[in-house]
Design a protein around this nucleic acid. Structure first.
Length: 598
RNA sequence: GCACUCGUAGCUCAGCUGGAUAGAGUACCCGGCUACGAACCGGGCGGUCGCAGGUUCGAAUCCUGCCGAGUGCGCCA
């Protein structure tokens, strides 16, 4: 696999991108200097201001691998480098660093171009994909046996952010909510529901608190052997299509799905009923999956169960990794369902790429499913299967998270608390907001804070759940970004006329403007990175730095007070507008809303 | 036993397939509202990047070993 440069992603190629531009010039110069083109220039923002704006780090590693003197090579490349009108200076420093000092006029013109583009599109324009793909994004996938709790937050909002990013880049995204509605535990729930309905309960009433209902059923199951037997019997009847069982199950599922959908609405997650493709949907495919595996000689009976031994996954002793696809009692497992889902995504959905946002603890399982699906030909060879794992939620004590009572925090409770807290803060800070506006803002701020707290952490690491960080509205948080946005909107409202939108161009008078523009120019490459790797925290960090650069600009550069005649007022208004649209688009991709005032 | 992940400031975390003097937030201290919105800005304090080797011009990053934490490994999902 070659080195990936996001700026050479064909999707990114259609727009002005400063790093891409530099990269192109460097590739040319490197080619002229006799460097094979598999060596990337690796243009990156410089670590320190005294090292210029950008540096080309690839030259040093190329020199190393080609066993050339790095300083000499750098000199040769710079001699071929054409950055006229782009850089005012290119230095070679230390062992062979190439430092690029951009021309202010060039930066200003890049900003102007970007502004005109975004103003023409009425916002940050989405890229037109040259090679749009069909990408299945499998996320959220709650277990319908229980109420959604905070542990479901990650898959739901990270998956949703990725879906939005991929759509923004022009891909065809197919959301799949692989809801868990078909496990063994549903026998238990049906048995409990039957008993409670027998006592005259209405299903809506019995199930108004899903979590509580589940606990009742579980306690009943553990305590009463005859109840447990009945439950197990119900599983078999349910999966073989028994009418009565199916009806009870359906009542349960309806209420549980409605609960999930209420959470999605509150979160602003773009998962609809159409995206639900639950485990039960694959029930009728399972016998054929197993029969195919048997026919191909991939599955064999071992200790009573039907097992696929995966040669591609072996341990140090060369033992192939086993995956059970059918239990000794004939029942199927979630591995079987996952295989059926993959075949569906290949044959029906025609996916080029499938992304799974699932807990890291399922890593082995996902590897097994992918390997078997390929061996069995359930998916085309070129289809890209990616498990994008996330870490376990930990408690303050560093152990897997539990509340004092040993339970989990309901997602609904967390969201309501965040909104309530935001409402109190808003009433304090901005009492003149009307009641309806305050409620609206409280919702956006509270939900935004919760989502950002999660999205801004590296996906793959374990993460600490704390009310404090989830409900924080200061520092590197969503409200900080939202606040930056409202400050800009406030200026733009006060500008009154809109002559500035079409007259004049961006000019640079100081460091604050320069930094702000350089940050604005990195939006596209940041989004491309998120689409490739599936780490939304990269975008969070970018937006925080953007908002931060704007806040400094705001302190140092008066906007409305500037003289119209010098053109500076228009220049700064355009920068404000460009920052606002970039913040808004970035937050939108993360699923976080903005507002006019807060 | 085997496998995967992780260990960075008091706390919570960034650090982009090796780059120059390791950065934010928070907490604490100092300064800034008769100012385009102070949910903000500027400054200070704070780190043997778990430990020890190795690879090289250069290591938080790559390799090996050790210590510590979490997770997974044929009939739950």
């Amino acid at each position: 696999m070659g080195h990936y440069n996001p700026l050479f992603d064909p999707l990114a190629a259609s727009f002005m991108n400063i790093i891409e531009l530099l990269d192109q010039q460097f590739r040319q110069a490197m080619a002229l200097a006799g460097i094979p083109d598999e060596y990337p220039s690796r243009i990156a923002a410089s670590a320190r201001p005294e090292f210029g704006d950008f540096q080309a780090n690839g030259v040093l590693s190329a020199a190393k691998q080609l066993r050339l003197n790095p300083r000499e090579l750098a000199t040769r490349i710079v001699a071929h480098l054409d950055l006229a009108n782009i850089a005012e200076r290119v230095d070679i420093a230390g062992p062979g660093f190439i430092n690029i000092y951009l021309n202010d006029a060039f930066i200003a013109s890049a900003a102007t171009q970007l502004y005109q583009q975004s103003s023409h599109h009425r916002g940050r324009a989405s890229k037109v994909a040259k090679c749009a793909e069909t990408i299945v994004v499998d996320y959220s996938s709650p277990n319908l046996a229980k109420e959604m709790h905070v542990g479901h937050l990650r898959s739901t909002i990270i998956g949703d952010a990725l879906a939005k990013v991929l759509e923004y880049l022009g891909h065809r995204v197919v959301r799949q909510n692989h809801m868990g509605d078909w496990g063994t535990q549903f026998g238990m729930l049906i048995a409990e529901l039957e008993e409670q309905l027998g006592e005259g309960e209405q299903p809506e009433l019995a199930l108004h608190d899903l979590e509580n209902f589940y606990q009742q059923a579980k306690a009943h199951f553990d305590a009463a052997p005859d109840f447990a037997d009945k439950a197990r019997n119900y599983v078999v009847k349910l999966q073989s299509g028994d009418q009565h069982c199916r009806e009870l199950w359906q009542q349960f599922i309806n209420i549980s799905v409605a609960h999930s959908e209420a959470i999605y609405r509150q979160l602003g997650v773009a998962l609809s009923a159409d995206d639900i493709r639950p485990e039960s949907a694959y029930n009728s495919d399972l016998p054929d999956i197993v029969a195919t595996l048997k026919k191909q000689g991939l599955a064999q009976v071992d200790q009573g169960a039907l097992v696929v031994f995966i040669d591609e996954l072996t341990d140090k002793q060369g033992q192939p990794s086993p995956m059970i696809v059918q239990k000794s009692d004939g029942g199927y497992l979630y591995a079987t369902t996952d295989l059926a889902a993959l075949r569906y995504r290949n044959n029906q959905l025609k996916a080029d790429r499938v992304l799974y946002f699932i807990d890291a603890r399922q890593s082995l399982h996902m590897k097994q499913v992918f390997a078997v699906a390929r061996k069995a030909g359930f998916v085309d060879q070129q289809m890209r299967l990616e498990h994008l794992p996330f870490g376990t939620m930990m408690g303050e004590d560093g152990k897997p998270f539990r509340t004092r009572s040993g339970g989990t925090v309901k997602l609904a409770d967390l969201l309501n608390e965040a909104i309530d807290k935001a409402a109190i803060l808003i009433a304090e800070k901005n009492p003149e907001l009307s009641e309806p506006e305050r409620l609206d803002v409280a919702h956006k701020v509270g939900i935004g804070a919760v989502k950002y707290a999660d999205l801004s952490k590296t996906r793959t690491n374990d993460y600490l759940f704390s009310w404090g960080s989830m409900l924080s509205f200061e520092g590197n948080t969503a409200p900080y970004l939202q606040y930056a946005y409202t400050r800009i909107r406030s200026i733009l409202r006060r500008a009154e006329t809109d002559d500035w939108t079409t007259v004049g161009s961006v000019t640079i008078t100081g460091e604050a403007e320069r930094k702000l523009i350089l940050q604005l120019l990195e939006f596209d490459s940041t989004v491309a990175l998120v689409a490739r790797d599936g780490f939304p925290h990269t975008l969070c960090n970018y937006l925080y730095e953007l908002a931060s650069a704007y806040m400094s600009f705001y302190e140092q550069c008066p906007v409305l007070k500037e003289d119209v005649d010098t053109g500076l007022r228009n220049s700064r208004l355009q920068l404000c507008e460009l920052t606002a649209t970039t913040l808004q688009k970035g937050l939108e991709l993360l699923g976080i809303e903005t507002m006019e005032r807060m």
